[in-house]
């Protein structure tokens, strides 16, 4: 069994999360933003599993939470991409800053 120090895993997932935030802030393409959000959820999952492995007394808990997060990520992706497709059909663009009809 390989035992890494817990803080190393946490810092790694923190970096992954930060990269995700960067993408979500900076991307213009809505699909790009969605991809970045998936990265962030993934980073959160790593944390959950690491905690369940290292600290919890009921090790199933963390994994089940991660399971739920994965399910929610899948729904988020499906609904988000459906919205993107509907948007593309109407406005012929997927750039977030070109969709500004409601913005004054």
């Amino acid at each position: 069994m390989i035992i890494l120090p817990l803080p190393h895993i946490l810092i790694f997932s923190l970096l992954l999360f930060a990269i995700g935030i960067y993408g979500a802030l900076v991307r213009r393409n809505i699909i790009g933003i969605l991809i970045s959000i998936e990265l962030m959820l993934n980073a959160a999952n790593i944390n959950l599993i690491a905690f369940s492995k290292y600290t919890s007394l009921a090790p199933e808990t963390g994994q089940i939470f991660a399971l739920f997060v994965i399910a929610i990520a899948a729904t988020a992706a499906a609904v988000g991409l459906a919205i993107v497709l509907a948007l593309y059909r109407v406005r012929k663009t997927v750039q977030a800053d070109e969709v500004h009809l409601l913005k004054w």
Binding site: I31, E38, I46, L67
Partner: peptide, 28 residues
């Protein structure tokens, strides 16, 4: 995940994320 001994989660991760979410994204 496999290193953290969560093999089940690893398989689910590949099945759902790589098999489903990424496929959806590529479709879009």
């Amino acid at each position: 995940y496999v290193v953290l001994q969560a093999e089940y989660l690893a398989a689910i991760q590949i099945l759902l994320y790589v098999g489903a979410v990424v496929t959806l994204v590529i479709f879009a």
